[in-house]
Structure formats: C-alpha cells, structure tokens
Simulated scan of single mutants.
Amino acid sequence: MLPDLAELLADAHVVALPMRVRFRGITTREAVVLRGPEGWTEFSPFVEYDDAEAAAWLRGAIDFGWTAHAPAAASVPVNATVPAIDPGAVEDLLARYPGCTTAKVKVAEPGTTIADDVARVAEVRRVMGPTAAVRVDANGLWSVEQATAALEQLAPFDLQYAEQPCRTVPELAQLRARIAGLGVPIAADESVRKASDPLAVARAGAADVLVVKAQPLGGITAARSVIAAAGLPCVVSSALDTSVGLGMGAFLAAAAMSPGYAAGLGTAVMFEGDVTADPLLPTDGRIGVRRVDVSPELLARFGAPPERDAWWRARLARVHAALRAAA
C-alpha cells in the first residue's frame, strides 16, 4: 500500500540532530519523522543519495508506519561504535556504551593512515579486553592491495570481521581469497544495501557475513526476505537513524538476526539530542524492541532550518511520485 502524499506529510517533521563526533563526514544528521497508523516512522536517506536510491528508504518508512510488526524479543544486543578518533579518546567513548561487549571501529578514514587504524583498534582491544568482539568497517575505501596490507596488521587483534573493506563485489571476492589464511571474515554492507541485487554478494561467495539495514532495503518485510534468501549470517545495523529508525532496526534484528552477533543499533549515543525523551540508548549492552513516541518539544528544538525543511519535503514529494509511477 502506498499512502497519499498528503497523508505522509500530515504529521511529518524534519529534524537536524547534532552529533558528538564527526561520522561519515557529517556533524549533523537530518531526517524526516512521520506518523502512520501503526506509529512513528522515519525517512532519512543520506543527502547525497539520488531519488532512485531514496525510494527504497521511503518504502521502508511506509512499511514500518503502515504495517503492524510484532516484536519477536524484548531487547537485542548492540555494539559500541568507535569513529575515527584518537586512541586517547577511545576509553571515554566506550564508557557511553554500558555493558556492550562488541565494538565496531571505523578505519580507512580519509586523511588517516593504517598506523592510525592499528593504534585505534589496539586501544579498543586493550580497553574491552580479550573476550570482546571487535569489528572494523572501511566503508569500501580500500583497494584490494590496501585492504590486504591493513588486515595483515589488524588480524592479530582477533577481528570478528572486516566490514566492506573494498567497494565492489569482485574486489571483495578477490580479497576474501587472498586473506584466507588470516582468519578475518569479510562482511558486506554497501554491497547489500546499495546494490540493485542485494543477494549478488552472497551468490559470488564474496562475503562471510551480510550487514543489513532496514530502511535502505525497503523496510522490515523486504529485509527479512533478503536475510532468508542469503544463506549467510546477518547483522542488522543502523544508518545513523534517530531513535524512531533504530526502533525499526530493532524489530528487524529481533526477528531475523543471526545468534552470536550484536546489532549495530546503539548509535543514538552518537547524537547530542534525539526526537524522543526516551531514546533507544544501550543498557547492559542491549536496546529495547519497541516503537518510539516523539516529543513535540524535541521536534521543535531540533527542527531543521526553513530551507532544509523545504528541501526534505520536496525530496519526499519527488520520491513518492516515483513510487507512485512505479506502482
């Protein structure tokens, strides 16, 4: 079902949430939260994505807001997320993730070196101890040669997996074969959520783990179909969502994520503010599986400037028109 545009806009709010540290090159996360018959939902494709790619995100928002989804568990385990920060800031950052025993560490940040990445991962391992699960995420920014060299230096820290070390599926397959002796599994993220065929990476034998995100895959219903067809362990992660979008991810993680992995849904910690007075922050290493109610006061406090509000509403209208035409 595709609601009318007027129904989508009837209770839609554009917010701009300040972030504690720079992440994915941004310091403010913009999003649209809107209310459907089943509760609040979120439309927040990154600003650089074109309308065709944003269409899946709108399908995801509609799926969550206009479809009843029963929670399959009360809570799900989540990982700490460590941006490309100096090692000296790692311990304070990890303290914001109480009870988390898994950490995802950003690597390959433009302007940094492999030595910087090694120092950051080493500090995470030191602070969290030998039994913690440590992941690294390169966002596809390494070549096969760079990834091989980097993972040879990072492998001694006992990585749970390396997420999207290279950009393309053929590169991932080549890297996976090349580092087979290192014991570092390869996880695919962008090769799933940004691909026209999200299962291509699994069919190519290019990854050991799939990272799935509810909004970019078209919502909980569509993402569960991808997970079921992939035949690989899956980790549900966020796309820097507000707590409304994190709720969407939590429902998906509770229903379909592989045991033994923590979800990447603890990212509300990264924001200075949120759209709700009861954000989905980690407690004892977990977040609740629930729909989030927004706060009118916080919507007003973090409301986007008028020109950005107009930009997002125009974008929503264009993407809705594209979905209407496709339907």
Results as ranks from 00 to 15, higher is better:
G285M: 13
A73Y: 05
P282M: 06
V201K: 00
A10V: 06
N139Y: 05
A250K: 02
M1L: 15
A314E: 14
L265R: 05
V144R: 07
V134C: 08
V124H: 02
A222Q: 14
G183S: 08
G249V: 07
I227T: 02
E123H: 08
P18I: 09
G183N: 06
V124N: 02
R193P: 00
V90C: 12
S243Q: 09
Q215S: 10
L8R: 00
V33Y: 00
R301Y: 12
V134H: 04
E123V: 00
R35T: 05
V121N: 10
R224F: 08
W66T: 07
L159H: 04
G36L: 02
A54M: 07
D50W: 10
A119I: 06
G231T: 13
E53S: 08
A277D: 15
L9M: 15
Y161K: 02
A277S: 15
Y49A: 15
A138D: 04
V47P: 04
T67C: 13
R324C: 00
P198C: 15
L298F: 02
L17N: 10
R35I: 09
R135V: 03
R193M: 08
F46G: 04
K194H: 12
L210Q: 07
A310Y: 11
W40N: 11
G36S: 03
E30S: 13
G140Q: 01
V244D: 01
L154C: 08
L58D: 12
E145N: 09
I179C: 03
A68F: 09
T112I: 01
M257L: 06
L199C: 14
L172Y: 14
D241I: 06
D63K: 11
V47S: 13
T27F: 09
S295N: 12
G249N: 06
G247I: 02
R315W: 04
R167Y: 10
Y161Q: 03
A254P: 00
N79K: 01
L217E: 05
V144S: 15
A16I: 10
H69D: 10
G39N: 04
R301W: 05
A162C: 04
I26T: 12
K106G: 05
V107W: 08
Q160M: 11
W66P: 04
T276P: 07
G218D: 11
V124Q: 11
A222R: 14
P83R: 05
L2S: 03
D189L: 09
D116G: 06
R324P: 00
S196M: 12
I85S: 07
D274P: 05
L93T: 01
P233W: 13
D117G: 03
L5T: 06
A108S: 08
W40C: 01
R178Y: 11
L34G: 01
A52W: 04
V15H: 11
A74T: 12
L8M: 11
T27R: 15
A228H: 10
A239I: 11
A10H: 11
R324Y: 00
Y97W: 14
G285F: 09
M248P: 00
N79D: 09
L8N: 12
G219Y: 04
P87K: 11
F46K: 00
R286H: 15
P233A: 13
Q215Y: 03
V275K: 05
R135S: 00
V236G: 14
D208W: 05
L159S: 04
A207Q: 01
E53A: 14
P185Y: 12
S237W: 08
P77A: 10
